[in-house]
Design a protein around this nucleic acid. Structure first.
Length: 260
DNA sequence: AACTCATGCAACCGCTTTAAA
DNA sequence: CTTTAAAGCGGTTGCATGAGT
């Protein structure tokens, strides 16, 4: 496969931020004619830009269906959830968030979500607790604190630890080969097509059986007296455990037992 | 008020994928 | 089937802005 020629090998085309006049030209042209061939568009629209730049400007900024403003909590949960098995497939993730562009989601991930996962001691790529001790230390400390707080705050009758999530997560495989995940109020439907198309089908089983973390939430949420939170440490069906993510912190693990 | 640092976002770069010749 | 152009995608950069000192 040959690489496409550079966008501006002559060095004559304009780069950098778009002016309102350029936006107007591009918008007007596309509204009248559609974008057709991006390569020819700049010439036809009277823009001194390369087609690639025009396409990017249109898809990330000028498109009329773009949603602006802060990401809602539901959108945030959806991104986290989809990223846990799709990885950095921003365009695939974007298809589940109407009005959001892949670029916007990518930026949001890199500037907000990734940092929060790291701060909480999770590996942002696997969404699992980091395995090397020193990197995972913040999380272990947080878990230890959480355990103590919960022991103090929860009522005596059989408490099921809420894990680090306040969201209720449920997964079910239906006959139509679709998975439905529910976080807060936002149901997310992921079709087999998407999973297979992204090569994630192998991870699917792992995901459904607790191989991935529940959606991200502030650990402090779980300890503020809401012991009735419905999140379970296992996606498979609410198995009670004194520890969140028992697959990572088995009760019998001498190190963990000793640590706690 | 001036400066520095951190953050967020738009845009670019280069690689991969797709489709047409 | 091979080659090539075009489009798509993800990583990265650089600028604008705001917060802190």
């Amino acid at each position: 496969m040959g690489r496409s020629p550079g966008c501006d090998e002559s060095g004559l085309l304009k780069k950098g931020p778009w002016t309102p006049e350029e936006d107007e030209k591009l918008l007007e042209f596309i509204q009248k004619n559609g974008h057709g061939s991006w390569r020819n568009l700049p010439r036809l629209a009277g823009l001194n830009r390369c087609g690639k730049s025009c396409r990017l400007r249109w898809t990330n900024y000028l498109r009329p269906d773009i949603k602006r403003g802060k990401f809602s909590q539901d959108e945030e949960q959806t991104i986290l959830h989809l990223h846990s098995f799709l990885g950095n497939k921003w365009s695939a993730i974007a298809t589940h968030l109407p009005g959001r562009t892949d670029n916007e989601i990518k930026n949001f991930w890199n500037t907000h979500l990734k940092k929060r996962l790291i701060q909480m001691g999770f590996d942002p790529m696997t969404h699992r607790p980091r395995t090397d001790f020193f990197d995972a230390l913040p999380q272990l400390v947080a878990l230890a604190a959480l355990r103590g707080q919960l022991a103090a705050a929860c009522s005596p009758q059989g408490t099921t630890l809420a894990g680090a999530s306040t969201a209720a997560a449920s997964a079910s495989t239906a006959g139509d080969h679709q998975m439905s995940y529910t976080f807060s109020e936002a149901p997310v439907t992921v079709s087999d097509d998407l999973l297979l198309g992204c090569g994630a089908a192998g991870d699917y089983e792992n995901y459904c059986h607790g191989g991935s973390l529940p959606p991200l939430a502030d650990l402090s949420d779980a300890a503020d007296g809401r012991c009735s939170a419905t999140a379970s440490s296992s996606f498979g069906g609410g198995v009670s455990s004194p520890l969140p993510w028992p697959e990572f912190f088995p009760d019998e693990d001498p190190f963990i037992t000793d640590f706690l």
